[in-house]
Design a protein around this nucleic acid. Sequence first.
DNA 1: AATGGGACCTGCGCGC
DNA 2: TGCGCGCAGGTCCCAT
Length: 266
Amino acid sequence: MPELPEVETIKRELEKTIINKKIVDVIVNNPKVIKEPKKEKFIKELKNVKIKKIIRKGKLLIFKLSSGRYWTVHLKMTGQLIWPGNAQKSRVSFKFFDGKILDFNDLRLFGELRIVDDWRKLKFIQELGPEPFEINTTQFKELLKKRKTKIKVLLMDQKFISGIGNLYANEVLFKTKIDPRRQVNKLSDKEKELLFKEIKNILSKAIKYGGSSVDDYVRVSGNKGDYMKFIKVYDRKGEKCFRCKGTIKRISLGGRGTYFCPKCQR
DNA sequence: AATGGGACCTGCGCGC
DNA sequence: TGCGCGCAGGTCCCAT
């Protein structure tokens, strides 16, 4: 599932391929992923404009166009951006002046494409919490104050902090030996500091290795990310804990699969 | 504010 | 072997 490191990887790779290139055609194989404006207008907005800049905010990719408007892409769970593509199994494809194609694939059709005047006005963006890299420890601890929910649910809440999804929430809590069910207000100062440090460490390392290819995520090239080999708990139900030889357990928190070691995560 | 549920989708893996 | 069901998770939305 694409989280901050995966989306950042895609952003960096696309910066090497489509910046300053003109889109000459848009092929829509399934209009469902186009959220605004309607298909015809969407195509018109992208035809004969260049991609000037790529921005990432949380898990959202934003392309600044030469028209001054913005094209946004949310990959949700199964979205992929592939270069060069072929428009064969894509939902929408973008043909550039040199004949090369960027594919937007999305098996489960949850992805969202938009053209907007200003991405900063999107409701999703306005409500988005800060990224871990935009705040310091003091601010992180301040955000946690007065919250009483389970720590794992809060880490995945994009309105609280943006960029962390299910996989990295599980990994960060394993690394810090914190039980995902712990109430936020019961965490010690030391635990909060450690948590914040490891959020940044793990996300940075995942970016360095090009993200984690679980489920459908792949890099722009179609290759898998390399962070897989560092994953300690995600999807390891019933297997031995790498740290204490306990058994990894799977429970549901916030409606999501939660993996942890009940023996060493307290 | 917290919690839990369903909705959106499709392919895969499990159990019978 | 084959079929049907539950599950996967990012986000929104609703009820309590």
